[in-house]
Design a protein around this nucleic acid. Structure first.
Length: 501
RNA sequence: GCCCCUAUCGUCUAGAGGCCUAGGACGCCACCCUUUCAAGGUGGAGAUCACGGGUUCGAAUCCCGUUGGGGGCACCA
């Protein structure tokens, strides 16, 4: 028996991979890494009505993507690692039945013959009397042989665990000592339904015991239920794990973060072009702090500093704006090849769904990187920012074509005057000159000066003509990337459009 | 209704009795840079540390209460 730390994340595949699950998984992983412990993934799919293979796949893929893959437990639909499994609750039915039998044999659990209707009536009666919901314990006193006879006769019976009276102490690593009177636990707890299927509070304890979990790190929403777990651990005669309840992630209105009020699916954030580094960085700082003023941290840096002492006690609002800022920071930090490969799927998807007329080649994206890196808060932003380079045709909005201080006539004259200079100054498929001075810029500035135009207005007219947009990467680089023929054709098209006004 | 947790700028937070006339970051505003948009730089507004009592020479920090917020109380997880 070693003192090695064993922690777990136990997602339930009743929905897509949730941001809150990701945060809990991350904190468990960080704690395991920091202590040299083992990080386990267990799938809690006892709710067969709501659990699906698709959700499980989404969760496991999300964990893998974020770098939160298990050391032990479930890796994928096919792969499971470790000797203390099975790690999927749906495969542990026999074990739950065995433990339930044992508790029953010890008199720690009993058969309950109450029907759903009776329990409902009891509950609503208490509610009407302004009393907290609580099982009366009506079946607790049925003699064992009577109960056995009724079960044998085929009467449906759930199995209830006897809640021992007394005060239960939760020694929480984040919150300190918490005392809860067993009286407030709602009465004896159903651990097996009448059909024999196990319930959450029971399976979680059996699993944590079987898997040798030493630290249960989970959301604060489980704090009130922890005494039930402690009582169950004691009934099983196993050592208690340590508990650490993390603050909840909140909607902007400060309620528990939910799908209804917030974007909660990790896959949605991924599809928008959030980097895994940014999500991990952001999530780590939601409810935990370094104690220093550093903000942009890699998983390795976070791992090296993580501790439960700096975990916040109060809930934290999920601030998407801040996430986007962190994402931008990480995009700017990625090496070129890395950024290129992260961008690749976004360009492929855009080409496939028609937002771009054709796929972008690697060299083309590579050439764009320096132009867009500082301009994209999300990977997906790159598409809107550069789509003009990958479109066969472009429809000018006449309203955008004319710079604010100009009229249509001036704009047309300017485009006509600039056209030959551009024809001379740009080649086919030139590379961007980036920070180097572009000779064409000087030429066009001279033109503007000679005509009494503001260079900025001329550039804006050209930008709108060449790209169809008013916010673009730097103009001259954009035109070089576009190539001589396309740039001139678009200027001609813009002139024609202006003539029609 | 009962039980539990919690409370520092709009948001995420630093702060573990004197270093705090409360620091940083996001966001916001202004200016600089600038061909647009960004990025970056500089500066600014923004918190009577929820409130009220204590303890102490001294409290954002400790104690009690109040109020606010949240969570939990299923044959859901």
């Amino acid at each position: 028996m070693s003192g090695a730390v064993r922690v777990r994340i136990a997602p339930s595949p009743t929905g897509p991979f949730h941001i809150g699950t990701a945060r809990t998984a991350l904190f468990n992983l960080l704690y395991a890494r920091r202590t040299g412990g083992t990080y386990i993934v267990r799938v809690e799919d006892t709710d067969t009505a709501r659990s699906t293979a698709e959700h499980e796949a989404d969760i496991l893929e999300g964990l893998r993507w974020l770098g939160l893959e298990a050391d032990e437990g479930i890796i994928s639909a096919e792969e499971e690692r470790g000797s203390r499994g099975p790690y999927r609750q749906s495969a542990r039915g026999a074990r739950y039945a065995e433990v339930a039998r044992q508790l029953h044999a010890q008199g720690l659990a009993y058969h309950c013959f109450c029907t759903a209707a009776e329990l409902d009536a009891e509950r609503s009666a208490r509610e009407k009397a302004k009393l907290p919901p609580r099982y009366s314990g009506r079946c607790a006193g049925i003699a064992a042989d009577d109960a056995a006879r009724r079960v044998a006769a085929g009467e449906p019976a759930a199995l209830r665990f006897r809640i021992k009276p007394g005060v239960v102490v939760v020694d929480d690593l984040v919150r300190g000592r918490v005392e809860i009177d067993a009286e407030a636990l709602g009465g004896d707890l159903v651990i097996l339904r009448a059909d024999g299927s196990p319930l959450y509070h029971f399976t979680v304890v059996v699993d944590d015991a079987d898997m040798g979990i030493t630290h249960v790190i989970r959301g604060e929403d489980h704090l009130s239920n922890t005494p039930k777990h402690i009582l169950l651990f004691q009934a099983l005669g196993v050592a208690l794990p340590k508990f650490a309840h993390l603050p909840l992630i909140l909607n902007p209105d400060r309620t528990k973060m939910s799908k209804r009020k917030s974007q909660t699916a990790i896959s949605d954030y991924r599809a928008e072009g959030f980097l895994k580094e940014a999500i991990v960085n952001f999530l780590a700082l939601l409810g935990w702090s370094t104690g220093s003023e550093d903000e942009i941290l890699s998983v390795e840096e976070i791992q090296a500093r993580f501790d439960l002492e700096h975990v916040q006690k109060a809930g934290a609002v999920f601030d998407r704006t801040r996430l986007e800022w962190i994402n931008g920071q990480w995009i700017r930090r990625l090496a070129n090849e890395e950024l290129l490969s992260r961008l690749r799927p976004f360009y492929d998807l855009a080409a496939a769904d028609g937002r771009l007329a054709r796929p972008a080649r690697d060299e083309e994206i590579a050439a764009l990187l320096p132009l867009i890196r500082e301009r994209i808060p999300l990977l997906s932003s790159a598409i809107e920012l550069t789509d003009f380079l990958f479109m066969d045709s472009l429809v000018h909005d006449p309203a955008l074509l004319v710079p604010k201080r100009w009229d249509a006539t001036t704009t047309r004259a300017a485009l006509e005057a600039a056209r030959p200079l551009i024809a001379d100054g740009i080649g086919e498929g030139d590379a961007p000159l980036l920070d180097a001075p572009d000779a064409l810029e000087g030429t066009l500035r001279a033109l503007a000066e000679g005509e009494g135009w503001k260079a900025g207005d001329l550039f804006m007219a050209l930008r709108a003509a060449a790209t169809g947009r008013t916010a673009t990467p730097p103009l001259f680089d954009s035109m070089r990337l576009l190539g001589r023929a396309t740039t001139l054709a678009r200027i001609d098209q813009a002139i024609a459009t202006l003539r029609a006004i």
